[in-house]
Design a protein around this nucleic acid. Structure first.
Length: 551
RNA sequence: GGCUUCGUAGCUCAGUGGAUAGAGCAACGGUUUCCUAAACCGUGUGUCGUAGGUUCGAUUCCUAUCGAGGCCA
């Protein structure tokens, strides 16, 4: 019995009451079924009587009485109680609750899958860090969260393209190229340029891997060589880091290609036809105020250079032309101010902001040392890259730590703490629970406990009821994680499952004690053990974290 | 000044229009002849930043305000 099934049973009971004429009501398609905090309040509880009582012209408790007597007839519901202002507390029979273990094992890796986003084509753009340096902690957070979100979307039926936008056009790239040139010539970095060991390395590699004597060229030509080769090397390094982090993008999109293909001109032309472009002071503008922006935006400056938004316009149009229903952008809080103009350009194309284009803003990652915030600065050598983090804590712990908090909160990362007390990390708690399920199953086989028998009524221990109830929530948690774009819900959920599994393990043996015979209860428990294994494994997979067989 | 995120236990953070608000860490104590002790059990702390409002019911929604971070001017 899952909460969804109970919700269906309640809806069916309401329909029956309406059909019988004892209730006048528009029956909703689903109702809230929750696990009460206090177990005396039943295995599950619903607040429908308080939600719908007034609509049906009844006092909540009277409504509850009526519904309760109808629910008594449902199979699997053992007892119905009415409490407080009109809560309906449901008690489920052990066999109906235990049946879930078989459902989960049968579904296997598919357990928890949904169809909510069936047929939806989603373009999920995340990280998109400039190729002027390695990926920092902030970008690493988006890599972990974004990839997990993509997995969640896929799990509920969506077709997801993971996309990375390389800003390889514009002033920042010019500064990067000048910095490489300066490094190659052993000159100090330009005032507004980039420094750091990676600049030296890349400059050295460009020199080593290029046949020509770049440094004997005039500066502007040499700088162009460094730009082309340096950006390419930076691309490679970023892709490699991401790959080692377990994140592989389907599309690495180069901003520069939008200019080379004249896509920028074409999209401006398109907007001009739609009447949203004007010229003033020698510049080309988008009339974004017509779509809720607080001022109009320059697309092409009076000197002929494109403003940053020019690429965004062409890029969005490109994504839509590739057939994506939803283009989701994950941006850092420092880009918050761009949201209105992005939404305006979406609307200018005649699309629906918030639907065809959706922007998720995530808060920053702070570096903390010994409880004190450390400002990340290249000069002070306190920049932490994705590679640094992985070196210190490993991919699993890094991804888990970054993906288990809401992106609405800024996140403090304390490297010393992560180094020193690796066991504090909840990822080990969850992984350990998973490894335990595997070892228990292995031992069961060698001791003659098999899955030839399944009698759900035997799963009657308190710890089994708790574990089953938690397992039953997985599909709903996945659906919510997708709906709210919050993959951290998966992490918090599997921590709860791991806890209830550990408690169950302590109380209920799958293999009999030495000398005792294998009984039905042992075989049945093997099903529950394997069900827990599946839910933990599926949850970890959605986070992109490995589910070890042993630890 | 405008926009925005956050404010919950000593620390790091979950959560929710419902019944007695949670977890991990940290502190103290306990559990192992037998499936993984990276586990389990027990002990305690909260004006859910503050003030109003909506509601049968608000920590959750709305408004104002204070504080912290971010972007913009």
């Amino acid at each position: 019995m899952t909460p969804n099934q109970l919700s269906e049973a309640i809806v069916a009971a309401l329909r029956a009451l309406v059909a019988a004429g004892s209730l006048e009501l528009e029956v909703p398609s689903e109702v809230v079924v929750e696990r009460p905090k206090n177990r005396e309040h039943g295995d599950w509880a619903t607040n429908v009587a308080m939600q719908l009582g007034a609509k049906a012209g009844l006092k909540p408790r009277d409504f509850a009485e009526l519904l309760a007597s109808e629910l008594q007839k449902s199979a699997g519901i053992e007892k119905v109680e009415i409490a407080g202002p009109g809560f309906i507390n449901l008690f489920v029979s052990d066999s109906a609750a235990g049946e879930l273990a078989r459902e989960i094992v049968t579904a296997g890796a598919s357990f928890g899958r949904g169809v909510e986003y069936q047929g939806l084509k989603i373009n999920l753009e995340f990280v998109s860090a400039n190729p002027t340096g390695p990926i920092h902690l902030g970008g690493t957070r988006w890599a972990a969260v974004g990839d997990s979100l993509a997995r969640v979307f896929e799990f509920v039926g969506a077709e997801v393209t993971r996309e990375y936008y390389f800003n390889d056009h514009g002033a920042q790239i010019d500064r990067f190229a000048r910095s490489l040139l300066a490094a190659a010539k052993n000159e100090p970095a330009p005032e507004d340029g980039y420094s750091g060991a990676y600049i030296q390395e890349i400059a050295a590699r460009v020199l080593a891997e290029t046949a020509e004597e770049i440094l004997s060229l005039p500066d502007d030509q040499a700088q162009e060589k460094f730009r082309a080769a340096g950006v390419e090397l930076m691309f490679q390094q970023i892709r490699e880091s991401l790959h080692e982090f377990g994140v592989d993008f389907d599309v690495y999109f180069h901003e520069n290609s939008l200019y080379e293909s004249k896509a920028v001109e074409r999209s401006i032309e398109r907007l001009r036809e739609m009447g949203h472009i004007f010229e003033e002071d020698g510049a080309i503008w988008l009339r974004s105020t017509a779509f809720g922006d607080d001022r109009d935006r320059v697309i092409i400056k009076s000197d002929g250079d494109a403003a940053y938004i020019a690429g965004d316009i062409a890029y969005y149009q490109d994504k839509r032309s590739r057939g994506f229903d939803r283009c989701i952008y994950m941006l850092g809080a420092d880009h918050h101010g761009y949201v209105p103009r992005m939404m305006a350009l979406c609307a200018a194309f005649g699309d629906k902001p918030g639907e065809n284009m959706e922007i998720l803003i995530g808060q920053m990652v702070n570096l903390v040392r010994g409880g004190e915030p450390v400002r990340m600065s290249k000069r002070a050598g306190t920049v932490v890259t994705m590679e640094d983090l992985v070196d210190v804590v490993g991919v699993d712990a890094a991804r888990y730590a970054l993906a288990r908090s809401s992106i609405n909160s800024s996140l403090d990362v304390d490297l010393e703490q992560l180094t020193k007390k690796t066991n504090d990390n909840p990822v080990f708690y969850v992984q350990y629970a998973h490894a335990r399920t595997k070892q228990v199953a292995k031992n069961a086989v060698s001791l003659g406990v098999d899955d030839s028998e399944f009698d759900p009524a035997l799963l009657s221990h308190e710890a089994e009821a708790e574990l089953l109830a938690n397992l039953s929530e997985f599909p709903r948690v996945v659906a919510q994680a997708a709906q709210f774009r919050e993959p951290h819900r998966i992490a918090r959920y599997i921590e709860v499952v791991a806890g209830s599994y550990h408690r169950w393990y302590d109380n209920c043996r799958v293999t009999p004690l030495g000398g005792q015979e294998v009984e039905s209860v042992h075989r049945t428990r093997l099903w529950l053990n394997n069900a827990a294994s599946i839910v933990l494994g599926n949850g970890l997979a959605l986070l992109g974290v490995s589910a070890p067989e042993r630890m």
